[in-house]
Every structure is written in structure tokens, then in C-alpha cells.
Design a protein around this nucleic acid. Structure first.
Lengths: 252, 252
DNA sequence: TAAATCACTTGATCCAGCTCAATAACTTCT
DNA sequence: AGAAGTTATTGAGCTGGATCAAGTGATTTA
């Protein structure tokens, strides 16, 4: 299956400074010289195919990974043999942050489609960050941002209805695609309904029914993995509550 | 309300090296000299009383806070004026990590009882960590650990039943109290049933009924905030599924 | 091109946990 | 100590979303 063309990919070495993701990735806000030094430790790995694991839970941790193309699902196997999907990750996003803690991965990461990643050996990153304050700052922020994301997910899972969850999910992808220069209203989701449901704490059937309903209500058009958002504003209203209530929000 | 005795507290300056929390807090694993330097930037603030805010969402961020005694609830106000409880924090735990991202707090923190905290001005910590690699490492780990915690909460809220949630909650406190030298089976919860429910994504009534049921099943004895765990093993079974299934756990 | 498998949709039913409501116990204030 | 306000418990009934079941398209295999 591994043909010559794939091998040729390995030689395509794009420097961080030339990478289109620079503003989304670790180099963000670094001086050109420092980007150069960061670039020195980054390794571009071969592409992963759909279903390939980038790492598995309990693997020894050595590198953070930055997605450069494609998409990745992270998940934890749980007691009863099923899994909890933790996130879907797009180019420019860093995975493996949970593993810094004790140098073992606490979740698994699998490619949802053909996906390329950069490897950033963490020990090297760490010592580099000691001598580049802005890099250190960048890493602190990155970790803090991840905490913020997860906090939002806690609210989603703790309080929101099924329709609010799916609307939030779709808008998140819309925004993230937009930030990457793709359409905010017309995109392909690389994960299955089952994975969406798992991530959102909903049954597959519920997700499916919601897609159908959203389509009936002309909020979107959906055909399998292809989604076209037709009324982003109403999706936002769904997520943030009727803005009438929002404005008269009480203090606590 | 602020009497003289409280003022006298302000003068009790316990150095990090003498603090009983040292092994739970940032100094963990640092050389004595480095603890000394860390100690130089730490400020002990006056005690907060029940209901006092340590910080509020959207406040400008300047310091991480380490709880030295008492307990704190963090929460985010959400759209419809209600709140999502994000966590309950005990001595040795650090709060404010989410605010590093953009120097604004994204959640509020309120004292659940009389509570003392240390302030660690973040900019000073950051520059100190540039020159103390082990401190830098400690901070990375701390942030990573926080990500790990939240990941566990995602699984809790995404997949677990009400009884599993409450059992998990109780065991978490049991372990944390134990780690701090208190009883693992006999403790006081400083938060209300309402706050527990909010945190666990359950209605107050459900929490109350579960406490009653757990008591009927002789898993624990509860009277208001005072909890005595009578059968920790069965609580663990509840959380981790019947251990028969657990052992034959499949790969994915 | 047919058969098998997998992913998704749709319908019917069920139930865990929510909401509403009343009461009880504790706390705070005067 | 009694009144007023909070917080917790308990009961009854409801419902959003789960589960179970069947069918329909896709996609892969042969």
C-alpha cells in the first residue's frame, strides 16, 4: 500500500516560517530568529492514513504533534470497552498536551482522513523555551487555551440541550474552518455521526434526527458528511439563548 | 465585620519551604534554593470569608492563586443568568490557570468557607521560570494535569449515570482529603447540594435522592454536609463498572 | 453485478432524571 | 425566642433523549 509517491512526501520539508499555519501554531508571535530555532527541532513525519494512530493511550510521550493537514480524533478508551471522544483537531492545532504531566499519553489519537503532523520533541522544546521567553510564554498560553476549551465543553455537556450541543458543534467547525481560510458555511465533516454523538454526549440516532430537523427548519443542508450552513445567525441564537434573555442576564 | 484578629493573620508569613502544602503545590520537586526564589515572589493575601470572590470572570489577570486553607468554587456565569460550576478546590490546588491565555479570567472564584490563598504574580513567575528549568517544568506539568482533570470530567458528563457521577465525586474528595492528611472516610463538604448538582450536571433533587439512597444501601452516612463513607470499595465498583467487565476490557 | 458490510435514518417505546410542588430542617436576623 | 429566609428532602408526574428495531443507502468485496 505504501507507494513511492508517499515516500516522496517525506522529503517535502516546509520550514515553520513558510508554513501557512504559522499564525495558528506555536511560532505565533515569535521573532524570525526564534522561529528558526524552533524549526530546528521540528520533524515532519510521514502522512497518516485514515484509521492510523498517531499515538495511543499509555504510549510513552516524547513529542507534541501539530496537525498540518487533515484531521484527528482524540479519545479515551473507558472501563466498559467503549470510548469517550475528547476532540476533533484541525490543522494548526496541537495534540498531546495532556501527556506532559507524567510522560504518558492519557488518550489516543487517530487520523480521520489522510493527515500530516509535525513532531515537536518535548524535551527539546522545553529547553529551547528556557532560552526563548516568548516561546515559553506561547506554550503557557497554549496550555491555558486548552484548559479554556475544555471548560467550555464542560458547560456544553453539563447544561445544554441536544440541539444546543449540535449547533455549538457546527459553529465551532464553521469558525475553525473560516480561520483556516476555508468556507465557514460549506464544509465536510471527517467524522461519523457516531463519533459526533459520542463527543457531544448524545446517541447516534439523536444526532441524525437533529440533522434532519435542522434541515427541515432550513438551518442547513446536509448530505452525509457534507454540510452547508444556511442560517448561521439562527444557529448562534440557539447556542446563546434568545438574546432577549441574554441582555437581562443577572450577576450570579 | 473585619476585626483586629483578622488583621493579625496578615502578618503570619509562612515560607514555602515551611508550608505543609509544599509537596502538593508549585514548589514540588524544586531545589531548596529555587524554592527560596519562588518564595520571594509569593504573597500571602488576607483570608477570604464565605461568599467572598477571589476573582471574577473578566477581571484582569495578574496572579495565580494557591489555596492554603479552606476551599473555593470556580464557576462561569452562562447566557441565561445561571452558572456552570467548574470545580471545587482544596489546599495546595492552583486556580486561575485558564486566565494565562489572554490575561483575563474566564471564570469566577468564590470562597466556600474562610479561605486563605497565596498570590503568585504570573509575570514574575514566568520570568523566574525562565531561569529555573525545574520550575518551568513544574508549571508545564501543572497545566497539563489540569487538562487531564478536565478530560476526566468530560467523560463523567458525557457518559456516566447519576449514581456514577456522585460516587466519582465522593471518591475524588476522599482521595484529596487523604492526600492532605485528613480522613478519607469522614469529612465535611463545604458546598451546597445545589452546587454539587450543578457541577455534576444533575438536578438538586437527584443529588439529594442519591445521598438518601446511598445511605439506605449503607454505602455512607450523611447528615447535611457531613459525609462518612462506609463502603469505599463498593463506591469504586460503581465508578469503574463491575470489575468483571473491567478486566476483559477491549482495545478500542 | 451481486453479496456483504457498514453508516445513516426513521419509527416506536421506554425510562432516568427533570420539573413542579409541598414540607421539613436549618440559619440568620431582629 | 420567634419570624423570615435558605437549603434539603420527598413525592408525583412528565419529558428529552436513550434504546430497541427495522429499513435504506453507501461502500467494499469478490
Amino acid at each position: 500500500m505504501t507507494n513511492r509517491k508517499v515516500v516522496s512526501f517525506e522529503n517535502i520539508k516546509v520550514a515553520c516560517k513558510d508554513c501557512s499555519l504559522a499564525t495558528l501554531c506555536l511560532p505565533m508571535g515569535l521573532e524570525p530568529d526564534d522561529v528558526e530555532r524552533l524549526d530546528g527541532i521540528v520533524k515532519r513525519s510521514r502522512p497518516f492514513h485514515r484509521g492510523d494512530h498517531v499515538f495511543r493511550e499509555s504510549d510513552k510521550f516524547h513529542s507534541l504533534r501539530v496537525i498540518t493537514s487533515g484531521s484527528i480524533k482524540t479519545y479515551t478508551p473507558n472501563e466498559n470497552g467503549s470510548e469517550q471522544v475528547l476532540g476533533f483537531h484541525l490543522p494548526g492545532e496541537v495534540i498531546g498536551l495532556d501527556a506532559i504531566q507524567n510522560y504518558h499519553h492519557t488518550c489516543s489519537a487517530v487520523a480521520l482522513e489522510t493527515t500530516a503532523v509535525c513532531d515537536i520533541p518535548f524535551e527539546q522544546l522545553e529547553s529551547l523555551s528556557s532560552s526563548i521567553p516568548s516561546l515559553q510564554h506561547q506554550i503557557y498560553r497554549l496550555l491555558s487555551r486548552e484548559i479554556g476549551h475544555e471548560t467550555e465543553m464542560l458547560t456544553l455537556l453539563g447544561k445544554k440541550s441536544a440541539e444546543e450541543r449540535l449547533a455549538t458543534f457546527l459553529l465551532s467547525f464553521s469558525e475553525r474552518f473560516k480561520k483556516r481560510g476555508f468556507s465557514a458555511t460549506d464544509f465536510f465533516l471527517s467524522m461519523s455521526r457516531h463519533e459526533i454523538g459520542n463527543y457531544l454526549g448524545l446517541a447516534v440516532e439523536t444526532v441524525s434526527r437533529l440533522f434532519t430537523r435542522f434541515q427541515d427548519e432550513e438551518l442547513l443542508h446536509v448530505e452525509r458528511k457534507h454540510v452547508q450552513l444556511l442560517d448561521i445567525d439562527r444557529l448562534y441564537e440557539m447556542v446563546h439563548g434568545n438574546n432577549s434573555e441574554k441582555t437581562q442576564q443577572s450577576r450570579i
